[in-house]
Design a protein around this nucleic acid. Structure first.
Length: 327
RNA sequence: CCGCCCUUAGCUCAGACUGGUAGAGCAGUCGACUGUAGAUCGACUUGUCCCCCGUUCAAAUCGGGGAGGGCGGACCA
């Protein structure tokens, strides 16, 4: 796989392709970043962007993981103490999941976001940005709660982070795209360069297959799920015998194979009782999806395999969580 | 600073005028049917009625106070 493909595979959007191509020419020493509001337990949403970070590391880039304690605070997630506590746990889980310790820099937002020069730049950005624009950028990130002044400061800080962390590319889910677009538009007016962005898709709801609907709320798979939890959750997932269900729906089981399993495993073995034809082996997502579509692969067998592979992916983080909690 | 409206199940809301400790839709749970899930049937569950005080035999409902949210007016020094 060539470098550009590694940088952009499974991305929902690349802004812009030209800029990322340039990055792919000479990736060594370049820096990529994702910001996360600290969370005590990682879920698949976190891991999806983490997969992209692993791709970037494989391509030779250094990765900055911003543990955005100030952002979490601005978004009403609790006191600084509580938030920083979960930030440590988050770091540990990312490392357990497979981020390379050597080329990953974990940075706490409050380490630099309270400095004078940062604050003054922030005020300049506030001056340059309409309320409307900032609110729209934040709409997908904040909960349905009442908009506070903190909510419009939040995306402006994200824009500044791109400069202050000195990164060459910003990574995030599609829910972050308006923030990144705002950053690209406004950073130059502060005398800084705009950076490209790579956006991962927002996967469909596991239970319903609904795509762009409400974020989070549905059943989500996390680092603290037991093997049995995974089997149960995956088994109850929406999974028609097609890769392209009617309407706006998607097949979440296939999505998990595509975005979580195949990027991390060379080969996928679907164990199947002899009465149904014995085991199946796949070395890429397309082959598996095609078999589901044709009927060669039954959804129930696909689910069994999915649960197993997800369990493998989560096991180290689950173990680390246990250690941290002293169990 | 003044005024108006809202707050009831996880969600959207009805019920309030004419007091008798609460309902619908959706969601959720469980079964049946499919070698998965969904769809479809069948059954079931769900509540500090925002908080406090008062009136009353009895308050989601009436009165007073408070909190949170939405909106408007005024001020424009």
């Amino acid at each position: 796989m060539d470098t550009y493909e590694l940088l952009t595979r499974n991305a929902a959007e690349v802004v812009t392709e030209e800029e990322v191509e340039a990055l792919a020419e000479d990736p060594d020493g370049k820096r990529a970043y994702v910001g996360y509001e600290p969370s005590g337990v990682l879920h698949l949403g976190h891991l999806l962007t983490a997969n992209k970070l692993i791709d970037l590391q494989d391509a030779g880039l250094d990765v900055v993981v911003l543990l955005a304690d100030v952002h979490a605070y601005l978004n009403g997630k609790g006191s600084f103490e509580e938030i920083r506590d979960t930030a440590d746990q988050m770091k540990e889980q990312f490392l357990a999941y497979g981020l390379d310790e050597e080329s990953t820099d974990f940075v706490l937002g409050s380490d630099y976001q309270l400095d004078d020069d940062y604050e003054l730049d922030l005020h300049e950005l506030e001056l340059a940005t309409s309320l409307n624009r900032a609110q729209r950028a934040m709409a997908e990130i904040q909960g349905g709660e009442t908009a506070k002044v903190s909510h419009v400061v939040y995306p402006l800080m994200q824009a500044l982070d791109i400069e202050y962390l000195d990164v060459d590319v910003a990574v995030g889910g599609m829910d972050q795209r308006k923030v990144h677009m705002l950053a690209r538009e406004e950073l130059p007016s502060l005398g800084y360069e705009k950076r490209p962005a790579v956006h991962t898709p927002i996967l469909g709801d596991l239970e319903t297959g609904e795509g762009k609907m409400s974020s989070s709320e549905g059943i989500t798979i996390s680092m603290e799920d037991s093997t049995e939890d995974l089997q149960e959750k995956v088994n109850s997932a929406f999974c028609p015998r097609t890769r392209d269900p009617e309407g706006d729906l998607v097949n979440p089981v296939l999505e998990l194979f595509q975005y979580h399993v195949f990027p991390r495993f060379e080969e996928v073995v679907v164990e199947r009782p002899d009465e149904y034809g014995g085991n199946l082996e796949y070395d890429d997502y397309e082959a598996l999806a095609a078999d589901l579509e044709s009927g060669e692969l039954h959804p129930a067998d696909a689910k069994g395999a999915l649960a197993d592979y997800l369990d493998d992916l989560i096991a180290p983080g689950r173990e680390r969580l246990r250690e941290i909690r002293g169990e």
